[in-house]
Each structure stands twice: as structure tokens, then as C-alpha cells.
Design a protein around this nucleic acid. Structure first.
Lengths: 346, 346
DNA sequence: TGCGTTAGTCAAAGCGCTTTGGATCGCTTG
DNA sequence: CAAGCGATCCAAAGCGCTTTGACTAACGCA
């Protein structure tokens, strides 16, 4: 059922039917009702491609999700981010188109999206420091919003981020207040903007507490459970091991927990862990007293907000940028306690 | 830069340029080269919408990912499945369009996709027993492939599944061989097809070992870490608690591990766990002797295969269906050992 | 009565591509 | 020499929608 058929069926012109359906005022209430009844009855939906071609708007938004070539890894927060964004898209009539792309092909992927014209805008995921995508997209004139920020980019752009620096400073401060002085930082890849900010927060809080930064306690890599496990095991073997860990994701924290338990240490008693928690739906670090003490910020909510920002930006192409800084709360759970000397084995 | 501009630039007709670019034979090698050089130079990409409208093919594939209204939960295996599928799409020039949809709106979502004509085919995720989507899509004539199967659907359709029944039978047998007789099953939601098959495998292996099925040891819910934790805690309180667990996802298994450790029990020594492992990239239940003994099958590889099947199906619309049953291997890890009496507290 | 105004409708152009159905040219063939 | 043919190329139609510009009928007003 297409517009022509529907209009013939009604004995009206395509113009009138189209206008009736799209809420234009130049059509009588009586006809409008007649048209929309018929449309509903025959389950008419305007053909997306034709509509897109005619209006120049595709009503779809691109997400380029990079797959690390090194580990073939997809960041698990995407699932929840996309759930949030998808919710908003569904309400606003947008489609979400995903390109899963090895990070080597990422730039071409953005260029193609623009040239092929199959999206009205894109969301930029996982910005690095001085991320090349921001000037690129600005130059192309493709509307975008960044989830995160990029230190080093001077010109204005729209972004939404959590206050990584502040929240990691708070978390560190929380640990030093508990008496910890050997605090390990298990961060994400060090070229990621968020990782840089988190480290800065950590270092500044250490400085405030008069503790020297020890590079031996700082690690960064892709945020897997195994990375947490291996790192913790290695750190336990140090002559002067840490009594607390600050980790950039729940997965890492779970790895630390596994390592601790393998060493017969209990979280919150023998060793403390604070993690960032994106509130992933299937993890559920919830409850009155959650498992992990955490800096918490819902990535799903971020998805919702970023999607709204982008839609607004597409609608009014006046180029005004918008910046949102979310505050991550510090939630105290079972994984932290006063510093204790490291329990030496044997 | 569009086709008209490019053809004017070259002093050729749009027809010729289009044919040159699409590899039709009616154009001389000399012109073809001239055209493709110019296209490359000006970074010309045919406009997707126009091409789609003209050809009737959108070159994109839909994935409807349902968000459980109950828990607002997105299955974390999607991220990896989509990574696999996306890889294939990228190679074949397809786009992936995602609809994140609360399961109440799911049916409408499929109907809309078909009526709006913005996808050439869809992939059906998470089939339940006798899933209504299969007859629906068949009726609509929208090409599809199911990831999983649906017991109760009679007419033929294309699917790819792992041998859930067999692999869970093997896993159960593995545990009974180790002397376990009280084996708990922590399954996914019981209306899911895979959950039904896994339970069937579990029950048949118990029967083979002459063990009566105890409903008190069987649970099913959405597969979160918390569900694993809470279930294990509850089961530990039984008068006759299980000595082993069979779980449907690594997340559940991690919950069980946490519960065990809270009860001062060690996996593989005091209690055994076998889990299904989708080889999610960020979990990495790897190594020579992985953490968990597991029935293992890569969901990313499944994504690749399903995508290929669908593309083939779209290309040759002759309606022949294809069925693939993958075998999940049983990998022995550190989480299993001979049965021991449950360590009573106090 | 004549004319401007307004509400309601329509025909046709255009979005950027593919594809059908010629057209042209240079050569070979009977 | 006329006809036929392959190799190239082109004009124009069509995909299904929106939107511009025009048209018609009805109405109010001087």
C-alpha cells in the first residue's frame, strides 16, 4: 500500500492525502479523518526511502562502534548506552544505524556515512584526547554529539560527560580518609579521554593527602575481567603491595575480587576496592549496601540524554553547541574498609 | 557531489556513469577508468536513499532488540553478536539498523519495518517456544533468520542454534560422573526456547544417572549476576543443598561464585559450577585451564554466520531455508571437582 | 452585480539514482 | 551494396514521497 494507491482509493490527490497525514492545516477536518482512518485500516506507512529522498532527512542516526583490532573487543557499556538512546529514538521516530568497524577503518566509516547521506547525525563514542573525529565531523557539517569529551579540541562542540576527574578525586579521597596510602589505579586505555581525567583526579587527591604517586601502582588497558585479575595478582606480589584499588569498570573490579579471593583476602576487610559503575542492567551492583563501593553514573541515562541532544541539534541546525556535565555520586558499598597491613602469606 | 554533477563534469550521461561505476559491460574500459578515477577523486558515493528507492533494496538489515519491560534489561550477548554480524555487513556493504523496543511493542516494530520498507531482512533474536514472530515474518514475506530455534513452529524457516540440549546433557553427565547427585540448574527465563532445551538436556542426563529431578533445585529468571547470587544463597539454605550448579550464563556463574565465597566455599573444591559460556570478549573465561568449566560456543561467530545466512537468503529469494546446529564443546576449567558433602556452617 | 478572500483541493516538478528502450557509429557479411 | 551486428552511449521514465504554485467554489462585502 503506497500513497498513490491510498489516494486513488479515497478519490483524493496524493497531495491532499500526504498533507492530511502530515498534519498540514490546508485540509478540512472531515477529509483528514477520512484519510487517517483509511491509512490505519490499510496499515499504510510512508515508504522510508521515498520520504527520505523527498525531504532530504533520513530520520536515522549513526553510531560507529569501534572494535579494537587488538582484542576484538566491544565495550560492554554500548549495550546499555544504546538501550537508552534507542528509547528516545523510538519516541521521536528515528532509526538507529550501527556500523561496527575495526578502529583502523573508523575514519572512512564517518566519511562514507556523510557522503552516502544515510544518517542525519552521528554520536561519537569513546573519545580520545584530541580526537580527530571532532574536527572531521565539524568540517563535514554532519551534526554530532560526543559521549564524553576530548581534551585538546579547541573549537566548540556538543558533548555530555560525567565528571570523571572530580569523582575519581572523591573516590581517592575516600580511600585516603580510610587510612589507605598504597592505592592502585586500574584504568582504561590511557589514550582515552576519560582515563586521562580519572587519573588526574586520582593524582590530585593523592597530592592533597601528601602521598607520592607511584607509577608501579598505575595500570591501564582494555577493561576486562582478566585484566583486573592479572593486574591485582601482579600488584600483590610487590614488596609493598597496595591496600586499596581504584578501578575504572565493574569488570575490572570483579577481576580484582577474584584475585583477592584467590589470595584468601576478603573485600572490605583485607583489601578495599572502589570502582566506577555504569549501572549496567545485568550487573546490578545494587541494594542498600551494594557489593562495590562505587562512583556511579547511569550510562543508559547518558544514552537518553545524548540522543535528545543530537535530535535537538539536527532539528535546529543553527549550530549552537550544548555541554552537559553529569555528576557521579559516590556510593558506599561492602568493598571498602579501613586500611590494614597486607596479609603476608606463609 | 551527485551523479548528475559527476556526469556533467565528465561530459557523459548519467546512464553511462552509473553503469561504469556498477560494473556493467556496456561501457568501454577507457571510459570506465576515466569515470572511476573521477569518482574517487571527488569522493563520490551514490546517495543511499536514491539508490534504495530506485533499486527497491535498502542494503540494510534490521535487528529488533527487545528490552525486558520487567527489568529494563538488555541481554549483554547482543554486543558480541552484533560485533560478529557487523563484521559481515561491513564486508558486504550492508548497514545494520537497530530497533530497541520494549517487548510489548515488538510486534508492531516488525510490522512497521516491513511497511516502511527500510530493511531488506531481519534477524530474530531470543526466540521463545512457538514464537509468533516466525509465522508473522513468513506471512509478511520479509526475509529473516532466527538466532536460535523455536520449538512448536511447524513450517520451515532458517535458523542457527547451538545444540543446547546435548551440551547441557553432557555438562550434567560430567557432574554426575564426578559423583554429584544434587545438581542445581540456574536457567534463563523459562519461556525462552534455549532454556527449555537446556532443561531437557539436564533432565535427561539426570534420568540416565538414575537421579530424580528435584524442582527445588531448578530456577529460571533473567540472567544477571544478582540472580545467580541470590539463587545460590537460597539453595545453600536448603536442608539438602546442591553440591554442584549448572548455569546458563557466565554472569549467573559469577553470582554463584560470589555466594560461594561469602559462605567460605571454594569453587572446584567445595562446590562445582558448570556454565554456558558465550565467549563474550570482555569476560575472557580463557586460558589453558579457564576459571569456569563450561559449555562453550562463540556468540560472535554465531553473529557472523547468521548474518551470512541472511544475506544469502536476501540475494536468492527462492525461499529455500537453511538450518545450522552448532556444537558447544565442554571445556574443563577450575570450577569443578569431585562431589563433597556440603560444608555445614558452625 | 462584481470582486477580493479564503478554504480546500490538485497537477506536476523534483529528490538522486537505476534501467529500459532506443540511437549512433564503424565494421563485417552475404 | 544493403543489411546486420557489436560496441558505446544516451534520453527519459520511474521508484514513492513532499512541496510549489495554481485552480475552484463559496462566501462576504461594497
Amino acid at each position: 500500500m503506497n500513497l498513490r494507491e491510498l489516494s486513488e482509493l479515497l478519490g483524493l490527490s496524493q497531495t491532499t492525502v500526504s498533507r492530511a497525514l502530515n498534519g498540514y492545516p490546508e485540509v478540512s477536518e472531515h477529509t483528514r479523518r477520512r484519510v487517517s482512518d483509511a491509512a490505519r485500516k490499510h496499515n499504510y506507512r510512508p515508504n522510508t526511502k521515498a520520504k527520505a529522498l523527498a525531504t532530504g532527512r533520513t530520520m536515522s542516526i549513526g553510531h560507529v562502534i569501534p572494535v579494537s583490532t587488538k582484542h576484538e573487543l566491544v565495550n560492554p557499556v554500548f549495550a546499555d548506552f544504546i538501550a537508552g538512546a534507542g528509547e528516545v529514538y523510538a519516541k521521536s521516530g528515528y532509526d538507529m544505524v550501527l556500523s561496527v568497524v575495526s578502529d583502523a577503518d573508523e575514519e572512512r566509516s564517518y566519511r562514507d556515512m556523510h557522503a552516502k547521506g544515510n544518517v542525519d547525525g552521528v554520536i561519537v563514542h569513546g573519545p580520545k584526547r584530541n580526537d580527530y573525529r571532532i574536527p572531521l565531523l565539524t568540517k563535514l557539517g554532519l551534526p554530532f554529539v560526543v559521549h564524553g569529551r576530548s581534551d585538546g579540541v579547541e573549537h566548540p562542540y556538543s558533548w555530555l560527560d560525567v565528571n570523571n576527574r572530580r569523582s575519581f578525586a572523591r573516590a581517592t579521597r575516600f580511600l585516603t580518609d580510610l587510612g589507605h596510602r598504597r592505592i592502585a589505579l586500574l584504568n582504561g586505555l590511557e589514550d582515552m579521554d576519560f582515563a586521562i581525567r580519572r587519573r588526574a583526579g586520582y593524582e590530585s587527591a593523592l597530592a592533597d593527602a601528601g602521598i607520592a604517586v607511584d607509577p608501579a601502582l598505575m595500570r591501564s588497558d582494555e577493561m576486562t575481567e582478566n585484566y583486573g585479575f592479572r593486574s591485582a595478582c601482579a600488584l600483590f606480589r610487590l614488596p609493598d603491595p597496595p591496600t586499596a584499588f581504584l578501578t575504572s569498570s565493574l569488570l575490572i573490579a570483579m577481576g580484582v575480587r577474584r584475585a583477592a579471593e584467590d589470595h584468601d583476602m576478603k573485600l572490605g576487610r583485607d583489601i578495599s576496592v572502589v570502582t566506577h559503575d555504569d549501572e549496567l542492567s545485568y550487573f546490578g551492583n545494587e541494594g542498600d549496601v551494594p557489593i562495590f563501593t562505587a562512583t556511579r553514573s547511569s550510562v543508559r541515562e547518558a544514552g537518553r540524554l545524548v540522543a535528545q541532544m543530537l535530535i535537538a541539534r539536527i532539528a535546529s541546525a543553527d549550530g549552537g553547541t550544548e555541554e552537559h556535565l553529569l555528576d557521579a555520586g559516590l556510593i558506599v558499598g561492602q568493598s571498602t574498609g579501613p586500611a590494614r597491613p597486607f596479609p603476608r602469606q606463609g
